[in-house]
Design a binder for these strands. Structure first.
Lengths: 121, 121, 121, 121
DNA sequence: GTGGTCTAGACCACC
DNA sequence: GTGGTCTAGACCACG
């Protein structure tokens, strides 16, 4: 995995875990890979992983079982919220920036469609 | 102006200046407010402003005239590139994140339209 | 190390690092001395070192690994380009000045050979 | 005329005047253009011109006649020295940098010849 | 310990 | 007054 130097790695890892959950790569109730395992696969320090997981536990997305590991919550409301928040955040950020650049609603949609066409066409 | 803690202030200032240029608030050839002035209005240290402006000078977006101030380039190609890059960057970031979340092209466009409707409707 | 007052220290440090790389004192992939270490040995402020290294990172000559240090790139193309640019820059500057003084091509070569003879003879 | 932002303009103007003298564009005894005239043609502030001329007067290259202007010295020794110094300085700077890059004497001469061939060939 | 960012304050070159 | 450079010293993210 690649990290953007300009934003804290632990935040990027948070997003990464959420992404795994949303896409189903990490199913509800599933065990999250061990901290040391994640540290290896993401080539990141253990402390950095810990920080990211702690935040997710705090948010209720993961539940930590002492001595056994971390698990994805099975609470559907929380999971739905995670998904919705991830999407909204991405879209909102884009919207704000494009508004700042003076684009109209139509121009925004057009810009997105153009980009999608370029990437997938 | 408000700054996001998670990304370097000097980068946000770069974006801010570019935005001013793109929206026409800073016309081609216009003088950029004095470094010390910007420092006051943005409530940021002079050096931080300098760092942002230096990068823009390096990129050719601004030209620095010693003892006189910084000015927006009049080179149309550069200006067009600035605008295009700003839009593409915003859209690309959004696209990448939504792809990571498993959204289809249609779902992406829908999500954007929904958000726009919510904000502007 | 000695610095020339008339040109920014950070630029001289850039050149110094490049020189170390070109001569092999800093091998490809090798770790550059810590910022604070360089600051001590070059008797220069840490920020000044940072500015020089940042430019080299930007240029791809160095790669920065957060919390671990700065390393010389292993990309051969980049390294070759660094070497070539350093030589060309030095020669070009000399050439331009001598042309401005009205010297012929032969006179230039002669002047260089004379100087070399004086220094090494 | 173009100036390199990285070295003081007044030094570049000094070099420029010396160059004019060496190439004969300013003959021995000739009057140097008025300060305000130079300021216009070089698009530089009057004070900056003054500073450069003062240094040359100090060095004996120019002689200042109150109320009448500045004139190129007619002292042949001084003029010869100016020329020699200009050449030596250019060559020495190049030599030092190439030595620092580990080039042999032959390689230096070769690099210069290559560059000349590229420019004039 | 290592790099990255920011602040505060100073000095210089130039207009 | 304007930008450019440098210093000193602090704090944060990361290993």
């Amino acid at each position: 995995m690649e990290f953007d130097d300009k934003v804290p790695i632990y935040l990027q890892i948070e997003d990464y875990i959420c992404q795994q959950i949303i896409t189903g790569a990490l199913a509800p109730g599933a065990q999250v890979p061990a901290v040391r395992q994640l540290a290896v696969t993401l080539t990141v320090n253990v402390n950095t992983i810990q920080r990211a997981l702690s935040a997710l536990v705090e948010a209720g997305v993961l539940v930590s079982k002492r001595g056994r590991g971390n698990f994805v919550t099975t609470d559907e409301k929380t999971l739905a919220a995670v998904r919705q928040k991830a999407i909204t955040t991405a879209v909102a950020q884009c919207y704000e920036r494009l508004v700042g650049l003076g684009l109209s609603a139509d121009a925004m949609v057009q810009a997105l469609q153009d980009y999608i066409a370029k990437m997938e066409g």
